[in-house]
C-alpha cells in the first residue's frame, strides 16, 4: 500500500504544487503555517477538490488524473477523513453517525458498536452530537472514519479544537488508535509537538510547496525556512559562503567548515554571548548591537538584537538586569565560529 501524490491546484490565492509519496502504513505529519494549503491537500486526496494537474495514485488505483480525464468521486475512494471541527451529523445519534459510513458502503452495521466500545463511548451511543464534549466528539469522528476501514486516513488538525488538558490525553489516545490502523495516515497540524508525537515523518508545507521532509529531528536541525526556524527556536539566515566566511546582508560570519555558494546558516540562541565592553578573546564573530526586545521564559530570557546582523540571544534573567537589556542597552555580541552551522541551500 503506497500513496503517490503530484498535486497542482489553483484555488483563490493558494497555488498548490505538491509532490510527495508515502510508504505503506506510514504516518505522515503535514506541518505548516496557516494558509499553506495543508487542508486543501487533504481535500484533494479525499476528492473534495479536483486537481488542475498532476496525479494521485493509491495502491495502484488512480484517484485523480486530469490529463487522462480520470477522477474518482469522494464516495468511491477508500479514504477516511477526520475533520478539524469533526462535522458529526447533528440529526443523528452517535451510533447512527458511526453507522453512516458502514451503511453507505454496504458493510455490516455491527462494527459501529465495536468501534464505539473501542473509543470508550459505548454508553453514549444514543446521545446526539450536540450533547458531547469536544474530546468525545473527536473520538466519535475518529470511530466514524475508521469504521469503514479506509486505506488512507486523513486527519485535519485533530486536536486543535480541544483545551490543553484534554489535548494531552487525546494525543496519547490518538497515537494508540493510529497505531492499530494499518493504512497510510496523514495528519495535518501546525503544532510541532503533535507532529513529533504522532508521525514517523514530517512534511513541511509552505505557500503550497513542500519545503522540507524528514524526521522531526532532521527538520529542526536544518531548517530551510523562517517558519521551521521559529518552531525550532534557532537563528536562521540565508547567505553566500566563501570557504569559511559567509556573507549575510552585508555582515560576515566566520564558520569552521568550508562551503561555497548559497547556504543556510543557523546559530542556537544560547550560543550567543553578550558583553558590556568589547570582548578580547577566542570568539571569531564579534559585533556591536542594541537590544530591541526581551521575552522571558521562566529564568531564561530571549533577547532580540539589531545592528550588524539581527540575532536572538538566550541569556539568564539576571544577565538581562546586569546589562540593562530591557532598556535597550548597547552591547557587544559574540558567537564562536564552532557554533555557526552552515549547510547548502
Amino acid at each position: 500500500m503506497s500513496l503517490e501524490v503530484a498535486a497542482r491546484l489553483q484555488l483563490g490565492s493558494l497555488d498548490l504544487d505538491v509532490e510527495l509519496t508515502a510508504k505503506p502504513s506510514e504516518v505522515l505529519a503535514v506541518l505548516g503555517p496557516n494558509g499553506a494549503g495543508k487542508t486543501t491537500l487533504l481535500r484533494v486526496l479525499a476528492g473534495l477538490e479536483p486537481l488542475d494537474g498532476g496525479r494521485l495514485v493509491l495502491d495502484g488505483t488512480v484517484l485523480d488524473d486530469p490529463d487522462q480525464g480520470r477522477f474518482l468521486p469522494p464516495e468511491r475512494r477508500p479514504v477516511g477523513f477526520v475533520f478539524q471541527d469533526y462535522l458529526l451529523f447533528p440529526h443523528l445519534t452517535v451510533l447512527e453517525n458511526v453507522e453512516f459510513g458502514l451503511r453507505s458502503r454496504g458493510l455490516p452495521r455491527t462494527r459501529a458498536r465495536e468501534w464505539l466500545t473501542r473509543v470508550g463511548l459505548d454508553d453514549l451511543a444514543q446521545a446526539r452530537p450536540g450533547a458531547l464534549s469536544g474530546g468525545q466528539a473527536q473520538r466519535v469522528a475518529l470511530a466514524r472514519a475508521l469504521a469503514t476501514e479506509p486505506r488512507l486516513l486523513l486527519l485535519d488538525e485533530p486536536l486543535a479544537a480541544l483545551d490543553a488538558t484534554s489535548r494531552a490525553q487525546l494525543r496519547r489516545e490518538l497515537t494508540r488508535h493510529l497505531a492499530t490502523f494499518s493504512g497510510i495516515r496523514l495528519v495535518v497540524t501546525h503544532d510541532p509537538v503533535e507532529a513529533a508525537a504522532l508521525a514517523d515523518r514530517v512534511v513541511v508545507l509552505e505557500a503550497g510547496r513542500v519545503l522540507q521532509s524528514g524526521s522531526h529531528q532532521d527538520i529542526t536541525a536544518r531548517p530551510r525556512s523562517r517558519y521551521v526556524a521559529d518552531l525550532a527556536g534557532v537563528n536562521l539566515w540565508r547567505g553566500q559562503a566563501e570557504d569559511r566566511q559567509v556573507r549575510i546582508d552585508g555582515a560576515t560570519l566566520a564558520a569552521i567548515e568550508a562551503h561555497q555558494g548559497e547556504v543556510f546558516v543557523t546559530v542556537q540562541p544560547r550560543a550567543v554571548a553578550l558583553f558590556r565592553n568589547r570582548p578580547d578573546g577566542t570568539p571569531r564573530n564579534v559585533w556591536q548591537g542594541r537590544a530591541i526586545g526581551v521575552d522571558y521564559l521562566g529564568e531564561r530570557a530571549r533577547v532580540r538584537l539589531e545592528g550588524g546582523l539581527p540575532i536572538v540571544a538566550e541569556v539568564s534573567r539576571a544577565a538581562v538586569d546586569d546589562l540593562g537589556l530591557a532598556a535597550g542597552a548597547e552591547v557587544w555580541i559574540a558567537v564562536k565560529a564552532a557554533e555557526v552551522e552552515v549547510y547548502p541551500a
Binding site: F89, P90, S104
Partner: peptide
C-alpha cells in the same frame, strides 16, 4: 446549512442521492 456536512457524508461513501 453547513455544506461541509454534505462533504463529510461523501467521504463516508454516500453518493449524491444518499
Amino acid at each position: 446549512m453547513n455544506r461541509r456536512l454534505e462533504e463529510a457524508a461523501r467521504t463516508l461513501g454516500a453518493g449524491r442521492w444518499r
